[in-house]
Design a protein around this nucleic acid. Structure first.
Lengths: 157, 157
DNA sequence: AGCCGCTGCTTGATTGGTCAAGCAAATACT
DNA sequence: AGTATTTGCTTGACCAATCAAGCAGCGGCT
């Protein structure tokens, strides 16, 4: 019996191999690097930046914890803690939700909006330098679709 | 004065915008998803798998902590703790380094090698399904080069 | 030979995330 | 109407990573 226990799957070819290795590196390095850039430059961690940014794009600059957590790819408890950090800095305020007294809205304060405006160039620069720059010859729209697929792949199966 | 404080950088065009959004998602989701797959399937977290894998590819299946940490994209202390976890499972053993009594070698045990052999199909499947699959039409070699660039970009600039 | 600074690794303290349990409000059921 | 279930969020316990401090062994310098 050549393959005794489990079905041996098709191994990676050399190009796949090096892509996967590079992916491993990027998954580890990129988020930390961009975060470190933001912290070094603007004292605003990537997670907090992302929360502020999502809030800023919403009518009334407010959002339910639920929805914000999903947009930030964070667990609900992770979101709670992020919002608490932002609240203590005065960048976000929490208001009880009118139509459901269990719910809360995170509301971007003026200070929060100002902080965001002051920080986005730093974020933009980090993303350009660490990522976009390296994909210059590529069809970005096509690439974006592939990434979306990779990010939203079914959880189990 | 139209732009009072800082120079306003070139904003992202729509394609860049959606690529960056997708990147944000992927950076968050992919490592956790692959790790969760491995844990669910084989009880072996991605970090530990990576350490075993790197050890297995080295002559004598042994490596200095230093070097292993670099290959795993982990801090030295993070590597120490990972190795301790692996050691308590009997998958790795530590030996003092012969030519430098300060140093340690992490050595893959037979049990560790077996564990790796049993786990790699799961890792492979996760990587295929969550990542490679979504880049089917692409020039993988070219993509790999771009990713390598993104992962190794100069730290400060 | 002996001290001094450097190196390799571990350990302690902290951080930022997760999951599970808790709690209060809303909703469904009879 | 009154209870049971579900929902929305927070809190507690935990975990894996980081940085900073500690420590032992090495190597250079005199």
């Amino acid at each position: 019996m050549p393959t005794p226990t489990a079905a041996t799957p098709q191994p990676l070819n050399p190009d796949e191999e090096s892509l996967v290795r590079a992916l491993g590196q990027v998954m580890h390095v990129l988020p930390r690097a961009i975060d470190a850039d933001m912290v070094g430059d603007r004292q605003l961690p990537l997670t907090e930046y992302t929360a502020l940014m999502n809030l800023s794009e919403t009518p009334g600059r407010r959002m339910r914890m639920n929805e914000l957590a999903a947009l930030c790819y964070l667990s609900l408890s992770g979101m709670t803690r992020t919002i608490i950090r932002l609240e203590t800095q005065g960048l976000v305020r929490r208001e009880r939700c009118e139509e459901d007294a269990r719910g809360w809205n995170a509301v971007l304060t003026d200070a929060g909006f100002a902080r965001l405006e002051e920080s986005w160039p730093s974020h933009l620069a980090a993303v350009r330098r660490r990522f976009l720059q390296h994909f210059e010859g590529f069809d970005l729209a096509q690439l974006a679709r592939a990434f979306q697929g990779a990010g939203t792949a079914e959880t189990t199966d």
